[in-house]
Structure formats: C-alpha cells, structure tokens
Amino acid sequence: MTDVGTPPQAINAIPLRHPWRWVAAVVIIVLVALFLYGAATNPAYGWSTYREYLFNERIMLGVLNTLQLTVYSMVIGIVLGVVLTIMRLSSNPVLGAVSWVFLWIFRGTPVYVQLAFWGLFPTIYQNLRIGVPFGPALFEFNLQALSIPFALAIIGLALNEAAYMAEIIRAGITSVPEGQMEASTALGMSWGMAMRRTVLPQAMRVIIPPTGNEVISLLKTTSLVTAVPYAFDLYSIATREIAARTFQPVPLLLVAATWYLVITSILMVGQFYLERYFSRGASRKLTTKQLEALALAQQPPAG
C-alpha cells in the first residue's frame, strides 16, 4: 500500500505513432511553399507598388484614423454596454424592456445599414433643437451645415458595439455564483464594493476573451464607415483614393491587409496578457496533494 506522503509513481506511457500526420504536414508545407513562390513571382501582385505605399504618408494617416475610430467607439461601447447590462439585470421592467429593445434592434440589423442611417441623420433631422419640451428652444443646430462624418461614424460603431458588449458583460456577471455576492454582503460590503472587489474580478475571466475578439472585429468593421460616408480610414484611403489613382487595387489591398494584421497582432498580444492577469489563482493543473488524494482514491480497499 502506498504511503500517504509518497507521491504517485509516474506512468510509463508509450506514445502512439501517427505516420499520416507527418504525411499531411509535408503535403501542407509543399502547398504553402508553392503558393508563396507563385505569389512572389506573379507580377499581378505588384510588389514594387506594395513596397512603395506600405509606409506612405496617406496610408499612415488612414492607420491613425482607423485606430481612433476603434478606440473611441470601443470605449463608448463598453460604457454603454455596462449601462445596458445594469438596466437588463434591473428589477425595473421598464428599464429591462428598453435594454432588450436596444439589443434587439442593434444586434438584429446589419452594421452597414446602421452606418448608412447615421450618414443620413443630418438629412432626416436638419435642425436639432434643445430646449423645454413643447416650449421655447434654448439651442438650435443646423446639422447639415456641420461636417461631422467622423463623429457620426463613431456613434454608429459605438452603438452597435454597445449591444454586443452588454451581452458579454451580462454573461460575465451571471457566471459568478450568487453566493459570492451574498458572502460579500455578509462581510459588510456595500453592493458597489462587492461588485468591484468580488464579482467583477471573477467575471473578468469570462469578459476579457470575447471583449478582445470584439475589439479585433471592430477594427475590421471600421472599413465599413464609407457608408456614413467617411473616406479617411485605412481601407478607404488605400482602395478608393490611391488604388483608384494608380489602377493597381491588388497591391493596395495587400498594404491595407498588412496594417490590419499588424494592429490585430498587437491587440492579440495585449489580450493574452490581460487574460493571464485576470486568470491569476485559477489553474487547471492539479496540485501534489490533489494528485496524492486521487491516487489513494483509486487504490482498491485493503483485505
């Protein structure tokens, strides 16, 4: 019988051989090499034009504008998502219904249609008045006289993103057992303190991965702001401005794709470190004591 203090012996396992995996790997490597060679020698890709415009001043302006659209829209989307989540979890039926209708509309319609609507907003509401309801107006703005496509693009992207962030945040909060909140309240914490110190740190493990995916998705969705119309993002400058002038769309598409990949890669690295930070204390690996207890539990009873 094994002593309690003795760690379980390692299993001498012999791995199975999988020769077809190596065959499949070789075939894939050969196909990738053939594709890369064909792309490198194909003049239709226009690699000289690609190198010429990769760090072009106009392209860099598009990268900057795309980053601004992503950051501003995501920040506003997260804030609105938190508000919608609180409304959705509220016991007030009116707040819950308003939140549900918002999510139903903005998740159920294409983002391109929403952006096109915001582009037509100054036409639909030519004059915006702020004042006493059914009374005199304190301020009045002529929206058609204002050039605000950048702001309209941010509003359209942010409202769409808020609908998805609300569901992500709600899923993260509801994933935490109710006993955590009850225990925090029993210790004398207020609702806000319990949410900040107990619920949200655990909910972030569920919230961070899909939020990272939403940021990456939003970065690529900025290419649709031409519906507003806003023509100074990375995709618009590369394809509608430079490609239309040079009559070489393929290398300019590759330039845009390269910058999207660079930014996405940086965001993925940041997401990895955030996930690791909020996953502290949560491990899928068994400790030594747990392995010992598992080994003892699997032993047949004596006698």
Rank of each mutant, 00 (worst) to 15 (best):
G188R: 09
G188S: 11
W191H: 14
G192D: 06
M193E: 12
A194W: 06
R197V: 03
T198W: 06
L200I: 13
A203H: 03
M204G: 05
I207L: 09
I207A: 02
I208T: 10
I208D: 03
T211V: 12
N213I: 13
I216P: 01
I216A: 08
S217I: 11
L219K: 13
L219I: 10
L219E: 15
S223Y: 02
V225G: 10
V225N: 08
A227K: 05
A227D: 02
V228M: 04
V228S: 08
P229G: 14
Y230R: 00
A231D: 10
A231R: 15
L234M: 07
A238E: 05
A238W: 01
T239A: 12
T239P: 08
T239G: 11
E241W: 10
A244E: 13
A244C: 07
F247L: 12
Q248T: 10
Q248P: 08
Q248D: 07
P249G: 10
V250R: 12
V250A: 15
P251A: 09
L252S: 03
L253C: 01
V255F: 03
V255M: 02
A256G: 03
T258Y: 04
Y260G: 02
L261Y: 11
L261Q: 05
I263L: 15
T264R: 00
T264F: 03
T264P: 07
L267Y: 02
M268V: 14
G270Y: 10
G270L: 15
Q271D: 12
Q271T: 10
Y273D: 04
L274C: 06
L274K: 06
Y277N: 08
F278S: 01
